[in-house]
Design a protein around this nucleic acid. Structure first.
Lengths: 115, 115
DNA sequence: TCTTGACCTGGAGCGCGCTCCAGATCCGAG
DNA sequence: CTCGGATCTGGAGCGCGCTCCAGGTCAAGA
C-alpha cells in the first residue's frame, strides 16, 4: 500500500505541511503513521479525512468544533447520539447560510439602488 | 433630534461599547458626533449603519472588507463602479454559501449513514 | 562517504477582531 | 458643591489559526 510524504500530502490536499502537523497536534487528523526514521507517511485514508476537515474549515467551523466532530465520530456513541450531534451541527450551518442570505439581501438592495 | 448615549447605542445594536469605538477607529462607522463635553452621540442613522455593518460581520466579512465597502459607498464612484463592486462581493458570499452547502452535504451523508 | 534537501520537534511570532485596563474627564442626582 | 457612574483616550492583552524558525535527524544521489 502506497504512502505519501508530507510534501505530497500537502500538495494533494492543498494544506501546508505546517498546518498538517498543526491539525495532527490538535487531534483533527491522525495520528499519522511514521516510518522507521520517524517521518510521517500519509495514507489515502488520511488524505480523505484531511479533505473532510478542510471542507468543514472552509465552511467556517473552528478548530474546537472540528475536534468535537472528530471525537464524536471516533467515539463509541450510539447512532442516535451521533445523529443528534450531526443535526445540531447542520442547524448551525443553516444559520450561517441565513446570515449570508441576509447580507446578500442588503447587497441586492444596494445593487438595485444603483442600477 | 434625539441622540443616543454609547450605552444605549450598544444596547440597541447588540454591539459592545468597546467594539463600537473600535469600529469607529477602523472607519467602519461614523465618525460619531460628539457633545460639548466630548461624549459620543449616536443618531438613528448611525444605529442603522451599525446594523448594516453587523449584518456583514455576521456573514463573516472581515474588517478590511467592511472598510472597503464603506469606502466605496461613501466615495464619488459612478453607479457602475459601485454595482460592479457590489456584485463582486455578492459572488464572494455565494461562494461561502456553496462551501457551507458542501459541508452540509457531508453532514447529511453521515446522518444518513447513522440513521 | 559526503552532500543536500526533506523532515523532525518545540516553541516563538503574527494578523485579526475584539476586550480590557489605567487614569483622566464629564455631568446628573442629591 | 460633592459624589459616583458613564465616558473618554491610548495602549496592552487575548484567543484563534496558522506560520515560521532554530537546531538537529534522516536518506537518496554523486
Amino acid at each position: 500500500m502506497t504512502v505519501l510524504s508530507p510534501a505530497t500530502a500537502a500538495d494533494r490536499t492543498g494544506v501546508s505541511i505546517d498546518t498538517l502537523r498543526y491539525y495532527e497536534r490538535e487531534g483533527l487528523i491522525g495520528p499519522i503513521r511514521r516510518s522507521a526514521g520517524g517521518r510521517r507517511e500519509y495514507t489515502e485514508d488520511d488524505i480523505f479525512w484531511i479533505g473532510l476537515v478542510t471542507c468543514f474549515r472552509d465552511a467556517g467551523l473552528g478548530i474546537a468544533d472540528l475536534r468535537e466532530f472528530v471525537a464524536i465520530l471516533r467515539s463509541e456513541r450510539s447512532p442516535q447520539d451521533r445523529v443528534a450531534f450531526l443535526r445540531e451541527r447542520r442547524a448551525a450551518l443553516e444559520e450561517r447560510v441565513a446570515a449570508l442570505h441576509r447580507a446578500m439581501g442588503v447587497l441586492d438592495e444596494k445593487i438595485a439602488h444603483y442600477s
